[in-house]
Design a protein around this nucleic acid. Structure first.
Lengths: 266, 266
DNA sequence: CGTAGTGTTGAATTGAATCAAGTGTCGTGG
DNA sequence: CCACGACACTTGATTCAATTCAACACTACG
């Protein structure tokens, strides 16, 4: 399997994550020969709080697959649960298909984030997950992760924390969806993306949206048209500068001010 | 500390959980002298999949506090995270206060369910949780649960599953809030309650709602008035029989039919 | 017995969806 | 390299589901 040509990519200069030549192990995030120890995401991914030898043990169970192309599925709803996945580069979306065939997006995943924990309890993934762009993944077979967690208290502790974080985040989304207006949801979404980009050392104020307006709408419980209208409205207010998928947050505090400014319902 | 008088309760005959005299350790769910081994919830709570000696070890770290009165707080938003809690009897709601003082309910908890996992990651509870009625709790100090999980692979596995279940459930709520109509949300909510009551051997078709219409509305992202209207609408359709807090699901399949019957948005 | 909290119902309003008609952008193959 | 087609996005007009405002009934508890 020649990994080198697969990571080749004639990406345009405005790509959020510039893809470099696959020469250095420490540099190219698409390169699947990278180790946990040398990965630049190790500070926010699973290896956090592990010592050198522990990282090595984790490294041994991680499988680095071929890169995923835009639209490729990591898994589909109801597939047997086998692994959780850490995003190494690119981005993914999870979605479920409702009875009438319409999809609803349940989450977006950026580098350093963990995908697939919804399958742990039922042993089947509860949603489908696909790449939004050229992307790569570290696959972590869950049974092995459990075994290793049993040996390494730090890893167990950290994985509890990762799951707890997911729960806390989901509850924030619950509040967002149950009480925020379209404008508040959108502002909150942009701010959330901003801080997640910052986590991976990308600009928190200028980035490319990896997802479509439709994806955003399905995630926030809005229609495409509403998302589009809100974007132009925020632009008219001077809070953001939107140009297709390119976005610049021009007034972070102003965006924060949007949230909660509209009076909530009873 | 006399536990006997605290569990005394002149509950009306229509109480969902009839409170019995605190004589037998195996019977009264409010009785705090019950052990995990003798608890009738052991099949769905933490002890599941543990053997006798393991249950004993779990039992040793569980703290059974005094019962909680309606409105008592288990913890408040931003309190330091110390424990997770298993509901032994009664019910609880979690909520957050939005900036403008309005509360939004993030969850309801029935016997056998685990509360407080939102605090694991940040070490502070992300919401406040209070009893909806006379209730009792098993407190499980999290650091001890972690230590024990490290010794008992079954417990580690099961706690991963409990957290994974919470994540999967939260994502279903995400879909519910982002794409269901008021009627679909309400029907789905009632069906969810029904199966949760069934889990604890209560009638899945006739039960008392432990929460107010307002709580339901705050949870589902609707106003009190809408919830009330939907209830009467479902009653007119012959699907339910509502009488204040008493509810009877007269046509479960009909209620299931509501969900997804209204066309979803783009 | 009165009062506060809880629940219901009606009428008017509104935020976001729907319907409709475009323009812009990208990737593909001729 | 350009033309084509498919998809992504925008904007406007209209509609509608749910909120808001308002008034009132019920219940439960001190």
């Amino acid at each position: 399997m020649k990994s080198s040509d697969a990571s080749e990519d004639k990406s345009s200069p405005k790509a959020a994550i510039v893809i470099q030549s696959p020469a250095g192990d420490k540099v190219c995030p698409h390169n699947n020969r990278v180790s946990c120890a040398s990965c630049r995401l190790s500070e926010l991914c699973l290896p956090i709080a592990l010592n050198k030898s522990e990282i090595q043990q984790l490294d041994d169970i991680v499988e680095r697959n071929r890169p995923y192309k835009k639209g490729d599925h990591l898994y589909r709803q109801n597939d047997g649960f086998k692994s959780v996945y850490a995003v190494r580069s690119g981005s993914f979306k999870s979605y479920v298909l409702s009875d009438n065939g319409q999809g609803r997006v349940t989450g977006f995943y950026l580098p350093g984030e963990i995908i697939g924990m919804d399958g742990i309890a039922s042993k089947h993934y509860q949603n489908s997950t696909q790449a939004l762009e050229h992307a790569s993944i570290c696959e972590i077979p869950f049974s092995q992760l459990e075994r290793l967690s049993h040996q390494l208290p730090n890893l167990q502790h950290h994985f509890f924390a990762i799951m707890g974080n997911e729960i806390a985040k989901d509850q924030q989304v619950h509040t967002l969806l149950s009480s925020y207006t379209a404008e508040e949801r959108t502002a909150s979404f942009l701010l959330g993306l901003s801080s997640r980009f910052a986590r991976v050392s990308l600009s928190p104020t200028r980035f490319l949206l990896p997802m479509t307006r439709s994806d955003i709408g399905e995630y926030l419980g809005l229609t495409v048209e509403t998302v589009s209208r809100i974007f132009t409205a925020l632009q008219r207010k001077g809070l953001v500068d939107v140009n297709n998928r390119e976005i610049e947050l021009k007034d972070i505090d102003g965006l924060r001010g949007i949230i909660g400014s509209n009076q909530a319902k009873s």
